[in-house]
Design a protein around this nucleic acid. Structure first.
Lengths: 103, 103
DNA sequence: TTTTGTCTTGACATTATTTGGCAAATATAA
DNA sequence: TTATATTTGCCAAATAATGTCAAGACAAAA
């Protein structure tokens, strides 16, 4: 798994000197589970990311961006044409936006 | 589900006037399953994409690119910051490449 | 309209993947 | 050492994805 997201929350947590236990408690999950999230072994849930952004005092949009990026990265990391794939996606997002604008 | 990939194979198939039944046979799946792949209800497997590129006489790299793009699109389509997410991913790909180059 | 072949859909069982917790192990700090 | 924090392996439960069957829809031709 990728570490784009997990690296970020780990460094933020250490910065603020909060133990995993404490964040895990608020998220209502086991410490072990939280640990795995921070190591990139488990994926946080969307709502958890939002709660975390609050606890770690960081913009939730930024954290969600990294969280999504992580998922994308996992898909294309092994592909040789990773960058081209991103281009294809970008094109299609634009295409879709046009469609929506028309409607 | 997204249609970046499915639209492509559908138009190629129609161009060549091949019935779904025939492609399904080579892929050793049910016609219904193939239909769903072409409608974007089911995901083709990697090997199936390669077989398809052969049957449809198209570069397998191109088809795989669309196939991957589809998966990525599904993840970020609902996100408001879709484009920014792609940027984050692109940055991290570059970062990783640097690391590999160093090693 | 009926027939024929093609395509599509929904429901379902099967399989694969992901999840969270527990307990034990390891690391770090006091 | 003792206490606290983090990590790991393993399991069961939950969730998601897959493929098939059977039935329906659709289109072209007879």
């Amino acid at each position: 798994m990728s570490i784009i997201f997990s690296d970020k929350i780990r460094s933020l947590r250490k910065e603020k000197k909060i133990p995993q236990r404490q964040l895990a408690a608020v998220l209502e999950i086991d410490t072990a589970t939280y640990c795995k999230i921070e190591k990139g072994d488990r994926r946080a849930k969307r709502e958890q990311v939002i709660i975390l952004s609050d606890l770690l005092q960081v913009d939730s949009k930024e954290l969600l961006r990294l969280w999504s990026a992580d998922k994308v990265y996992d898909i294309i990391a092994e592909e040789e044409e990773a960058t081209q794939i991103l281009n294809v996606v970008a094109e299609n997002i634009i295409k879709y936006k046009r469609k929506v604008a028309q409607a």
